[in-house]
Write a protein that binds this DNA or RNA. Structure first.
Lengths: 190, 190
DNA sequence: GTTAACATGTAATCAGTTACATGATTGC
DNA sequence: GCAATCATGTAACTGATTACATGTTAAC
């Protein structure tokens, strides 16, 4: 269900075709929701049927066509309702913590190498999110530029700050995870 | 795939039947992996076919039967291999951060109430995980008592500390999320 | 006798993954 | 002419969710 809301949120910035959306959602780790191309096209058609978005067929050259989707009033309303509603937390399903739960069953140095890979991975994510956060604060991403066009200039700073703060959240969580993994390394040695 | 490893990890402590495993995995938020009953029974049969676990049919009373599964050598080996291997991070898919990313589209007080619900939820989780962590450190949970029976006494403290530390990780992450949500509340007012 | 807990199953559906498939257009 | 990018599709499969379905046994 959330893919639909993610798509609505992106299309609220500006109309896009399936290909653009695919690039956006496949470039994922940097963003908050990822989806493969094969999921995006059928979902867009579903959403159009539901009246949440509207497709406009365009032609490039003579034979190549693309369908540019824009959010409808109904899509906007659906998105706003979803945004204003608290949703139940997803069921616990964290493969990495599951793995860590049984580290006592393997040799400490093997567990340590898994932890080190995890730390590197979290740091990589932190770096990407930091860059994205900076770009948002500077109002330099493609999407935020589009979005701000339809908002009063007085609100621009606040909007950018709110969006950037989400990535600060991702950074905080990944940092906490990496820090936890470092403590685990110390525990393994004991 | 990870449900299988979660099941192997639990069965390593002691043999259980589907009903016991169901109660364990449905009591989830407290643990690290959750699964509904309808997923557990078929998965157990699959795992038995794959030789990872072995079912022993028992009879209670005259007609009611249960199948008690225990982990096999092969299951143990599979679990150890999985534990010692770094796995790629799951694709980004965080519905709450997605929601927060568009809070600028709704009235601040509506966003605030979603954030407050989120904070309450995270605090609830923290409380449950804290209790579970304490119980593990005291070696008082059902499962850890069983597990320690097959390990040398000298290792008991270390094993309990390692397992408890996983819940310290969950607590750290949930705390970071709650703290982030509190900062968001302040940002919304600005 | 009734209720709560024990015990296992299945079917329909949805969300997500992997892989394959096809062709057009632009820039060099 | 060739490669990179543009553009859209589908099919098979896995993992997870929701809901239904059935009967037993122990404890009061």
């Amino acid at each position: 269900m959330s893919l639909q809301h993610a798509l609505l949120g992106v299309l609220e910035a500006r109309p896009m075709n399936g290909y653009e959306l695919t690039r956006f959602f496949e470039a994922a780790p940097r963003w908050v929701w990822s989806a493969p191309q094969s999921q995006i096209y059928p979902t867009l058609r579903q959403m159009e049927q539901a009246g949440l978005i509207e497709g406009q067929k365009e032609v490039r050259g003579t034979r190549l066509s693309r369908t540019v989707y824009s959010i409808t009033e109904r899509g906007l309303a659906e998105l706003r309702t979803w945004l204003a509603t608290p949703h139940p937390p997803p069921p616990a399903r964290d493969a990495f913590f599951l793995q860590a739960l049984f580290f006592d069953m393997i040799e400490p140095d093997r567990a340590a190498s898994v932890l080190k890979a995890f730390i590197a991975e979290q740091e990589q994510l932190v770096a990407e999110w930091r860059a994205h956060r900076e770009a948002l604060l500077a109002k330099e991403t493609d999407l935020i530029k589009e979005r701000l066009k339809s908002r009063p200039a007085a609100e621009h700073d606040r909007i950018a700050a709110l969006k950037a703060h989400v990535f600060a959240g991702q950074i905080a969580v990944a940092t906490a995870r990496a820090e936890w993994a470092r403590e685990s390394l110390r525990l393994l040695e004991a």
